[in-house]
Amino acid sequence: MTGRLQALGRATLDGLQALGGAVLLLGRLLRGATVVLVRPRLLVEQVYAVGTLSLVIIAVSALFVGMVLGLQGYYTLVDFGADDSVGTLVALSLVRELGPVVTALLFAGRAGSSLTAEIGLMKATEQLSSMEMMAVDPERRILAPRFAAALVAVPLLAAVFSAVGVIGGYLVAVGMLGIDGGAFWSNMQSAVDVTPDILNGVIKSVAFGFVAGWIALYMGYTAEPTAQGVSRATTQGVVRTSLAVLGLDFLLTALMFD
């Protein structure tokens, strides 16, 4: 009994300590991220790295998601004689919800996991230590640009996702189901607004990029410096990011559209 209580207490303390460590790291990441103002190349390199990692998978997923939305939307709306509005439904679902969320989930699996593994391995092979001994701060030189890159890349990728998704919806609705192309676009245009729809989507995706970058880097930076430790951190990073993104999505949606 005392043994279990003790274990519970220890787990709670460990959890709190990890949370504290993560918050402290976030502070240093935010401060360190100013490095990209002085050396924009560091940011460009990282955006390119995480962006190219995720671009294909995001475009392909978006195409399918858009096509499914087109189908489902059509079958639902056609009963109400509103099948011309399928473009609106596709676009709103993507911009407000699926674009940011699915992008963040895919990003976590593709780019986030690779960030965690990269940082974890750099730590395990003493590359971060040796950088410190060269008087180069690894948090500023290695971690912060990657964090900034996640902040920039996730919204960009979410925009790509929404755009490709709309095209997928168009292909199904207009190409397959015979909806009038003009009606598809014009209904969409009149129903989707920059504020709140697009702006809220952008805010969400920036928030998700923030969370995905932060968790991925924290997991890698605190990984046990062994092969096992790094692989565990990588998996845990993806799981935690996914949960955090979904939870945060609910929170943001409740705040935004009430």
């Binding site: 391995l121 750099m122 092979t125 003493e126 590359q127 230590s129 040796s130 950088m131 410190e132 001994m133 060269m134 008087a135 701060d137």
Partner: peptide
């Protein structure tokens, strides 16, 4: 500390090259 380290060089036992 960082200022001092600029004047120090260290060869790590593992080499620790940037891969």
């Amino acid at each position: 500390l960082y200022r001092l380290r600029r004047r120090m060089g260290m060869l790590f036992q593992s080499g620790a090259l940037f891969t």
